[in-house]
Design a protein around this nucleic acid. Structure first.
Lengths: 198, 198
DNA sequence: ACATTAAAGTACCGATTGGTATTTTAATGT
DNA sequence: ACATTAAAATACCAATCGGTACTTTAATGT
């Protein structure tokens, strides 16, 4: 163990809590006082641990993407399951995430994309980056599907990949507007009809 | 003409400008000073004309919906064109709105839905109300289409209506993330493949 | 001309904002 | 026992926040 006074709060837990506050209220809607109250870490502690508000927000968004986004993307990229299976599983996982009552509503990346603070352009950059990663992996998977013969050669694999990637944006907004499980899942059912038979 | 000193700025123009500022930067991200600078109307004038910040935001969002949303919804509701024609026209109109360089990016209703200020619950209520209106009209149109034989009877008209209504949410986020015309339109092309033949 | 009306403009209010300097507390190494 | 380390806690900063009281200006009605 280190030398000085022991930490009252685990920085990982603090970051997790801060993530949820930003996710729920946005960058502009969250004050440092909000974060102090929610995390239990005093203001100077937050600054010492995570830097200024913008830096803490970036770390929160990165944590969100790594913890909640990356597993879904890895599955989409690496699973050997058929295209309709992996695509549906991705969208349903997003839907389940929308319904998790231990987390704020919606998708933090979508919230951040939409808030798009003009006074803090770096925040827009990072959320666009994560949005792009999802898009790229969807496109890759659809191009692979075309090579595999899972979908016909005469369709625009890139456009289809982008379409399904964008369905998670719609789910993010629907989740933010308190859509129930039935609505989210019947939305996915309809979206899945886009997938052409091979 | 009235009695007192003439207005320097037309309240309609002021509201139009305020709408664009809120649309661009959100409720929490916009300060009264921002609005004073953008509109040219001094702060006491804004309060006298529109009430407090929350009230001005509501009027801005209502103006957005009436001016930009209602015409599209009226067309969707009243046009005698075939289902694929009116649906595509609706989505393409949304896409063109995303590309209008005289307006902020994205859709103000989507932005407002996603920001969803927890400290000002009325703002969430009104954006959800406008979102619901679009959904209702889409569902109506799909139910009508089913009666007309434009789509088969064995599909879930409500789910299809909600699906296409939600595509404008996706377009709103895509527009916010600076999607270009090609991406928006090929997105719509793919979405339109959902429409079943009669 | 002059009172009346209403908007513009200035100056200000307490509260809160993001951020920090300083002190106090609690552990460890010697 | 005591210096050292590091975090907690308090107190504070200038700037900005949403909102308002007050003064000034420019028009109209008589």
């Amino acid at each position: 163990m280190g030398r000085g006074r022991p930490r009252k709060t685990d920085p990982e837990e603090v970051l997790d809590t801060a993530m949820k506050v930003f996710w729920n209220k946005g960058f502009e809607g969250t004050s440092m006082s909000d974060l102090v109250c929610a995390t239990g870490m005093a203001k100077p502690g937050l600054y010492a641990c995570f830097g200024d508000k913008e830096s803490l927000y970036k770390k929160s968004l990165t944590r969100y993407f790594n913890n909640l986004g990356t597993p879904l993307l890895d599955d989409l990229k690496n699973s050997t399951d058929a295209l309709p299976v992996v695509v549906r599983r991705f969208l349903e996982s997003v839907a389940y995430s929308m319904l998790d009552k231990n987390c704020p509503s919606g998708c933090f990346v979508v919230n951040s994309l939409v808030e798009g603070s003009s006074t803090h352009p770096e925040l827009e950059t990072i959320s666009k980056e994560y949005d792009q990663k999802r898009r790229d992996i969807f496109i890759e998977r659809f191009e692979k599907a075309q090579k595999n013969g899972e979908i016909p050669l005469n369709i625009d694999a890139k456009a289809y990949g982008e379409f399904f990637s964008a369905q998670s944006l719609a789910l993010g907004v629907l989740g933010r507007a308190d859509a129930c499980k039935n609505k989210l899942f019947s939305f996915i059912d309809v979206a899945m009809t886009v997938l052409p038979k091979p």
